[in-house]
Design a binder for these strands. Structure first.
Lengths: 338, 338
DNA sequence: AATCGTACCTGAATCGATTCAGTTCCCGTC
DNA sequence: GACGGGAACTGAATCGATTCAGGTACGATT
């Protein structure tokens, strides 16, 4: 049984194909009689519109692409869910692509999405992506940057102020009595990492206390790298330990936490405080509930998708930068020393 | 600048459109000369194939849909990543849809995917989905069930043996000296929940010890529901507490763990042991590292996608059921009482 | 009664890649 | 040199939904 086409529906309903199309796309211009006949025919034949033909002729698309930096990270999972949730409201599907910070994969997905003529692209970018996005734009495909501020304002973006977040995190550590702070994060070509570090430095410089800050570099923002970094810290003579760690994200922070259980003894928070970034769902359920900088992940996804749809509706819109403020969530991992 | 079409490429390269198409799709039938001319033209014009036209005429699609039961759960995140990873190898994109155990959304996504004429559908189904999948099949869209055994063998499936997993989990609890076991899970229209409970019961019945098992029902498989269930347990008089909990998944288990910290005192594992299911990445990093039944999540996704592609290549293939065995991962949360 | 306007409908042209029947050209064979 | 066969190429027909110029019917207006 071949799938029913619009011609079959027209015949079945006793109208022309043009009328069927009008029922589907501008019901205002069709008589009530025709509408109901067509709907009945659609029902009876189990007709489903062929999106390829529709896209080909009308150029409209019911798909948006989302290129994600790190699918392993629940933070991005939450962002995707937010976007997908909003998309489903508009009958739009989300094409999902994970780059794992790999330029080749990023390029591949953008090609794929261009081939698909998606309505638009959400992207948490890696490296310099502007030329590629400009090209997409010249083909009528809008793009919104997610979790990354668009420095030159050429594209809309939805992000969280990582510099402020970094500052707030370290201010909190200082307020709770910490003086030897280590920032744990890397690689430094991820913008969020450098921003959070910059914020941390601001907090240290602004402080009236005498506070030291060092940087412990990791190869990735993962639990495993966090645990490895913890091992490196414990290798030092005790007097060289920092008394607080600010991790560039919660995955690192959880890894650090895991690594700071020494011979059954939990060093957190009495010896060493830890604060993470993102406030993923598992931060609260950690060995020692983890203080973190909360990002409104679902809202970020929804907002990005909404802006994308607005821009595709009106390509003349001026790009706008939406910046959310992170929120400090204090839990046990940064309790003051007893 | 309108996007270049195959006609522009043909003109630019001085060949016919048919030849360009052949270069792209069956380069074996074209002379080396033509191939290089066409490739140069493609390069110079920045030509990208119009997938809509391609799909319309040839019926081939470079997209598969993945309908996920619970996007919040990192387990599914890992499965999606596995599938996406395999898909990217074949130049295929994954359309992602989250149902949150909602029949309406499930239907919406299947409609959307049918409209898109995806190459095939991966689905972790909710409720009775067979009729809908049969219809997709009659339209040439294959489907593979993920994380759910296809009882009647009408579709291929990739799953983990939840009954065996449930049995192994509870056998482990019994072996480590537990006798009053509670299964925590729900709702019961999720197949995995009933299977895991069934396995648990088998373990109890087979045991030579005198073991009791009770069922604590939750409304969802989430951290919050786990914490709530823990609160209900602690409300009972102490002598009525179970001495071990088998949670239907790790999210519940993490919630239970969180809830079983009473006035700073950790009841796990000395008073109450906990074992979860899925072995998500955060199980190991929990307050008390969580024992769990590991599912090979990435492999499940990859395998499902590979089977889907094989089936779309040869629709006559007989559906096959791939069942992985879960693996017991013992951590601190089920250590024997001291 | 003629004219106009409005509401509704029709059906052919169109989008761009693929496909396939048909053409051209060249080489080998008898 | 006539013929067959294969390699390479051409270009029109095709997929199905949308669009739009044109057509019909009917009531209102003069």
């Amino acid at each position: 049984m071949a799938a029913a086409s619009i011609r079959d529906v027209a015949q079945h309903a006793g109208v022309s194909v043009g009328t069927v199309s009008n029922v589907l796309n501008r019901p205002g211009e069709v008589s009530a009689e025709s509408i109901s006949r067509v709907h009945r025919a659609i029902e009876e034949l189990g007709y489903i519109r062929n999106d390829a033909a529709r896209k080909l002729r009308a150029g409209v698309s019911t798909t948006v692409g989302f290129v994600v930096l790190d699918g392993q990270n629940p933070f991005f999972g939450d962002v995707v869910r937010g976007a997908e949730d909003e998309a489903s409201r508009h009958g739009i599907a989300v094409l999902y692509g994970n780059t794992d910070e790999d330029l080749g994969r990023q390029r591949m997905y953008l090609d794929l999405f261009e081939e698909q003529q998606v309505r638009g692209v959400l992207i948490s970018p890696y490296g310099d992506i502007n030329p590629r996005l400009e090209r997409l734009r010249s083909r009528g495909i809008a793009a919104v940057l997610v979790d990354r501020f668009s420095g030159d304002g050429r594209f809309s973006s939805v992000s969280v102020d990582s510099v402020v977040g970094g500052r707030m995190a370290v201010e909190h550590l200082i307020e709770t009595g910490r003086r030897r702070i280590a920032f744990v994060g890397g690689p430094f070509d991820v913008r969020q990492v450098t921003d959070r570090l910059a914020g941390a430095r601001v907090a240290v410089e602004n402080s009236t206390e005498s506070v030291e800050i060092e940087v412990i570099v990791t190869g990735a923002l993962t639990v495993a790298e966090g645990a490895a970094a913890a091992a490196r810290i414990l290798d030092r003579p005790r007097r060289d330990w920092p008394d607080a760690l600010f991790a560039a994200n919660d995955l690192l922070a959880l890894g650090l936490l895991q690594g700071l259980i020494v011979a059954g003894r939990m060093l957190v928070p009495d010896e060493i405080a830890i604060i993470g970034f993102d406030d993923i769902a598992f931060a609260a359920a950690a060995a020692v509930p983890l203080s973190s900088m909360r990002q409104p992940s679902g809202v970020i996804g929804r907002t990005a998708l909404r802006i994308l749809l607005e821009e595709t509706a009106d390509p003349e819109l001026i790009p706008r930068q939406t910046v959310f403020q992170p929120e400090l969530v204090v839990r046990a991992s940064t309790a003051p020393r007893r």
